[in-house]
Every structure is written in structure tokens, then in C-alpha cells.
């Protein structure tokens, strides 16, 4: 496929994607066609095409739309693939004109890592971002603040962050994040309270109707007392402290072996 054909395809794709009601299935078809075309143009192995800025920009645009499209179709593995390919364009081709979507997508990627609880990857990705952008770009600041609130335990703030997302693609990941948070809160509550009125549990967990609360309580094995409208958590006081015999034997054998070596 010649470069002019690719160009017209890209135009068709971006027109479809940016329309108010994009046909996602159609975009998918365009994308798979474009990917084949790009492979023919060797967009992944462009060692000798280092200077062809036009082609590289084209390839980057396709990948960017692809990444956003993956979020819309809720396909996380595909999103991660697109992001991995885009990293080359963001890091190694600094001579390209900067993309307006770059930090938006990086922010999305951060959120994606966060929603899967991959904290160490999250921080590694954070280090790669230019410090200037790190402090000032709202798309980047959003996931950073989110991570801080998560680490502290200010789940309230995570919940309210839904309202001020930089772009609507963020919502998808925040929704995933909410499930994670609910489980976090539940596990904290189990340790922190001996009992909790069901209604308060509902507010803590951001549930609005009673049925959801009861279902959730059942899922986490809470003892619900219908008369009192309270949930009881099993306390860990009755857990037995076992003697770690296995571990101590291993350690003692280790000492013996090393002592033997010294003597």
C-alpha cells in the first residue's frame, strides 16, 4: 500500500473517530487495515527511515487513535500494546512535532497501571515524564493526586476525583479503580471496627441502596444482624499464634552448616 492510500485511510479513521457518535466497530476495521499497512511501511523497524518525519507522525497518529479506541471499547491489553508502541515515538523521536494527545495518553496509561494495582510500574512510568509537565500538566497531575490519596487512604478524594477528570476516557479506569477501592475500604473496615451499622457501611463504601450493601456484605462474609441493622466483623483475637517450627529448623540448619565451614 502506498503512503498516499495510508494517508487517506488515516483521515477517514480520524473523521469517524472524532465524530460525535463514532461507530467503534468501523474504527476497529480501519485500525486493523492501517496496522497491516504500517507494518508494510516498516513503522516498527525504521532504522533507516529515521528522518522521514511525515511517515513517523502518521504512524504515531494512528497509534494514538488506536490507544483511545481501545479504551472506548474497554480492551485493556490492546491499550497496553498501543502504549508500548507509542513509547518509542515519545521517547526516541524527539525531532517529531509534539503531539497534543501525548500527555493525555500518558496520564491514561498511568491510571491504567493504577487501576490494576501495578504501583511499581506506575512509579517507573512516572520517572520518565519531564519534570516540567509533571508539575503543571493536569492530565498527569490527576493520576498522581489519585495515587497519593490512595496511599494515604483518603478514599473520599478518590471518589470525588470522578467529577474533574481531564478527559472522558479517564472515567473507564476510574470505574475499575472504584471496585478496587471498595475492596480496600472493606478490608480496612474489617480490621478497624468491631461492628458497623449497615447504613454507615453503605456511606463508607459509596453504596446508595440497601440491596447492594447486603450483597457486598455477603460477598465479604460479614455477619449481618438484621434486627440491629449492624454488620459484625470477626475479630482476629481468637487466631492462634503458631510456632514457626519449620522456619526455625531451616535457620538452625543454615547456622550449623556455616559454623561447620568456619571450624
Amino acid at each position: 500500500m502506498a503512503i498516499s492510500e495510508v494517508k487517506s485511510l488515516v483521515q477517514a479513521l480520524s473523521k469517524e473517530y472524532n465524530s460525535p457518535n463514532p461507530d467503534l466497530a468501523k474504527c476497529g476495521q480501519y485500525l486493523s487495515k492501517l496496522k497491516i499497512a504500517l507494518i508494510e511501511l516498516q513503522y516498527l523497524t525504521h532504522e533507516d527511515r529515521h528522518n522521514n518525519i511525515e511517515e513517523l507522525t502518521l504512524a504515531r497518529d494512528v497509534l494514538e487513535i488506536g490507544a483511545q479506541w481501545s479504551v472506548r471499547t474497554k480492551d485493556i491489553p490492546s491499550f497496553e500494546r498501543y502504549m508500548a508502541q507509542l513509547q518509542t515515538y515519545y521517547n526516541d523521536h524527539r525531532d517529531l512535532p509534539p503531539s497534543p494527545l501525548e500527555y493525555n495518553l500518558i496520564g491514561l496509561n498511568l491510571l491504567c497501571l493504577l487501576s490494576q494495582n501495578r504501583i511499581s510500574d506506575f512509579h517507573t512510568a512516572l520517572e520518565m515524564i519531564d519534570p516540567e509537565q509533571l508539575h503543571n500538566n493536569p492530565a498527569i497531575q490527576h493520576p498522581i493526586k489519585l495515587e497519593q490519596s490512595l496511599m494515604e487512604g483518603s478514599y473520599n478524594r478518590v471518589w470525588s476525583s470522578r467529577s474533574d477528570v481531564p478527559s472522558k476516557e479517564y472515567l473507564f479506569f476510574i470505574d475499575i479503580l472504584m471496585d478496587t477501592i471498595r475492596n480496600e475500604i472493606a478490608s480496612c473496615s474489617e480490621k478497624a471496627y468491631t461492628s458497623l451499622p449497615l447504613k454507615d457501611a453503605g456511606t463508607l463504601l459509596f453504596f446508595t441502596n440497601m440491596e447492594d450493601i447486603l450483597n457486598f456484605a455477603q460477598e465479604r462474609n460479614w455477619k449481618v444482624n438484621p434486627a440491629e441493622q449492624k454488620a459484625y466483623f470477626h475479630s482476629d483475637a481468637d487466631e492462634k499464634i503458631s510456632i514457626p517450627a519449620d522456619q526455625i529448623i531451616k535457620q538452625t540448619m543454615f547456622y550449623a552448616r556455616d559454623m561447620d565451614r568456619i571450624v
Binding site: E152, G153, S154, A192
Partner: peptide
């Protein structure tokens, strides 16, 4: 901290 609710969550997490 910002609010009492925040404090409750934070303390709960610290306990956990």
C-alpha cells in the same frame, strides 16, 4: 486533613 471522613478512612487504613 480535609474532613472527618478522610480522617476516618486514613485511620482505618493505618490500622489495616
Amino acid at each position: 486533613l480535609d474532613s472527618e471522613e478522610d480522617a476516618e478512612y486514613i485511620v482505618a487504613k493505618a490500622i489495616r
